[in-house]
Design a protein around this nucleic acid. Structure first.
Length: 573
RNA sequence: GGCGAGGUAGCUCAGCUGGCUAGAGCGGAGGAUUCAUAACCCUCAGGUCGGGAGUUCAAGUCUCCCCCUCGCCA
């Protein structure tokens, strides 16, 4: 049995409008989840979670501004995320909202557990309070604003109040050891250094609650109150982190968190144990790589295996910001998808995106370049030329050939035999590379393998020149067999290339499989229907159970990706 | 101010523990070809590897100084 794998995105602040940032993080998780399901095949045990974080005070005030109860406002906005994610073709298994009872009750239980274990205690909180906004500011923000309210300019007050604190410093040594040894793997590497550097500077207690104000605008039951102390509400950040557990705290799902029963509970990723990967943007790595693992440790639960923090998208060379109003929102991605196809958008984001530590630019000219190079001129054109030749020369069917007749190419001096015997070995190697890439979250390089194979197909066709051979095949069984073999090889290589490309482009690849009449999927019409076999078996070249067979129909269809004109204006939302 | 990352071809970046004429992809130029989506294939980049000094038989690759960019923290 393949080991269980659990992929998460952060739960998104429900007041936000879905934009490229939310979509990107979720896309990365989607591609990781799809790749895992493909690699592990029909027995894959993958759970992919996303959702929304809804208990922030601003949600209550925004709702009031819109003249509706907070939950209605949250419903409305959460739906926007659901719609956006459905549009993006994400394959999440669940969408959790922190306002749901299943979350609230379990989050409260987790906090209670921490209190029972003495990890959370009451203490004094001293900070800079902005009376006009009724909120505390961090030391940094306070200082930056010269200890005046950033909104009204009035002086801040130093205030003290009682709060509950999580004893983070108690876990310092453990955290450092876990992170240094990669027991908790922080990726990319640069982020790991950053986190370790910050831990070395010393850890502070983390406030986990806020006293509920007398004039609290939130309705009864909003948020999660501190167990045994209804005067305090659990700080949204702490409550939000709990979603990774609350969503899977059912008998069927519990195994997605590594359990304590088998061996050392604090050694995640032991054999058979679930592999947990949290994806997020770099701004919230501290919560996920330090506070959350420490909370889990305090509860006696294993930590996540991998915390992956990608960098940001910028737009046409400019940082995206509220003041500039240049966020690339879901509508703009929709406009690109309308023009270039959704899978093209997914491909661009995945292969050009900020998976590493540095930011990436979403530039229209770049989009078109990548679209043309990889998709239109790459997999699109190659599919087209291969299916066209099979149609033209063999009536649209994979033809029989005699494997003992070698394929030869004509050089200036002689006919040279083409080396084909290594093909199966090459593909087996690529499968290994792809699996390894996914394990290390090198999703982009794993996807690139598909394009590498397409390039091989184009080269192979140039070398063997089936279109020239076709002209002199009449009555020559040897040449006929060579032609059949070349096209079989080409089509078979494309079939395998498409498997590598699938996690990013599920719709288009399923389309290709329908044209090729391949039966990789349980339901050929549904790219989410699951695979009939693990990748290694599906990607077996030439004589595998899923390889193309003589007589198999290959349908010549419309262009998979039509070439785009770089001079055209960007699509607008 | 503290810690960290980085400055390599027009663009995006590879170059691990120092070693032959510094690489890839994209864009651009030329050629060849015609099965294909003006596509594919082949060839072409003469880039002071941020600047300076040093160590070494040998340095993008190590040391020191300087300049610049960017993170995280205070």
């Amino acid at each position: 049995m393949p080991r269980p794998r659990y992929f998460t995105t952060p739960i998104y602040y429900v007041n936000d409008r879905p934009h490229i940032g939310h979509c990107y993080t979720t896309l990365v998780a989607d591609v990781a989840a799809r790749a895992a399901r493909l690699i592990d095949g029909p027995k894959a045990d993958v759970f992919f979670l996303t959702g929304t974080d809804e208990h922030a005070e601003k949600v209550v005030t925004s709702a009031a501004e819109h003249g509706m109860p907070p939950i209605e406002w949250a419903d409305l906005n959460a739906q926007r995320f659901k719609d956006a994610f459905a549009f993006m073709g994400f394959s999440h298994d669940d969408f959790i909202r922190t306002t749901e009872d299943r979350h609230k009750t379990r989050a409260a239980a987790l906090i209670a557990d921490l209190m029972d274990k003495g990890a959370i205690e009451l203490g004094d909180y001293e900070g800079w309070y902005d009376p006009s906004q009724e909120e505390y500011l961090t030391e940094t923000v306070a200082k930056e604003n010269d200890f005046k309210s950033p909104v009204t300019g009035r002086p801040l007050e130093k205030r003290t109040e009682q709060n509950y604190f999580f004893d983070l410093p108690a876990h310092e040594d453990w955290l450092r050891a876990q992170i240094e040894s990669d027991a908790i793997r922080i990726l990319p590497e640069a982020r790991k250094n950053e986190v370790l550097g910050r831990i070395k500077q010393g850890l502070n207690r983390v406030p986990v609650s806020r006293r509920i104000k007398d004039d609290d605008p939130a309705p009864e039951g909003w948020g999660v109150t501190m167990p045994g102390d209804p005067e305090h509400r659990v700080y949204v950040w702490i409550e939000a982190l709990c979603n990774y557990i609350t969503a899977i705290d059912t008998p069927e799902r519990a195994h997605y968190w590594p359990n304590s029963s088998g061996g050392d509970p604090l050694q995640p990723g032991g054999a058979g144990q679930s592999q947990v990967t949290h994806f997020m943007a770099k701004d919230i790595i501290w919560f996920h790589a330090v506070i959350w693992p420490a909370m889990l440790h305090a509860m006696g639960r294993p930590a996540p295996s991998t915390v992956y923090a990608h960098a940001y998208w910028i737009a046409e060379g400019q940082k995206m910001s509220k003041s500039l109003g240049n966020f690339i929102e879901i509508d703009q991605l929709r406009a690109y998808a309308d023009k270039f196809s959704l899978d093209a958008v997914r491909w661009y984001l995945m292969t050009q995106g900020p998976l590493g530590a540095t930011d990436s630019d979403f530039a229209h000219s770049r989009f078109v370049e990548v679209y043309n190079a990889d998709l239109a001129n790459g997999i699109g054109n190659s599919t087209s030329r291969v299916s066209n030749m099979i149609d033209k020369y063999f009536g649209g069917r994979v033809a029989n050939f005699d494997p003992s007749v070698p394929v030869e190419i004509e050089t200036e001096h002689a006919f040279v035999e083409v080396e084909l015997t290594n093909h199966p070995t090459h593909f087996a190697q690529w499968v290994r590379e792809s699996v390894e890439g996914c394990d290390n979250c090198n999703l982009a390089s794993s996807l690139r393998l598909g394009i590498t194979i397409v390039e091989r197909v184009d080269q192979f066709i140039s070398d063997t020149r089936p279109f020239s051979i076709a002209k002199k095949r009449e009555g020559d069984a040897r040449i006929e067999s060579q032609l059949a073999m070349i096209l079989f090889y080409s089509a078979e290589m494309l079939r395998i290339a498409s498997l590598f490309l699938y996690p990013a482009m599920p719709e288009k690849m399923a389309d290709l499989w329908r044209r090729w009449n391949c039966d990789h999927l349980n339901d050929p019409a549904d790219h989410n229907s699951g695979f009939k076999a693990p990748l290694a078996e599906l990607a077996q070249f030439g004589d595998g159970g899923y390889s193309l067979k003589p007589g198999q129909k290959i349908t010549k269809g419309d262009a998979l990706f039509m070439r785009a004109d770089p001079k055209e204006d960007p699509p607008s939302a």
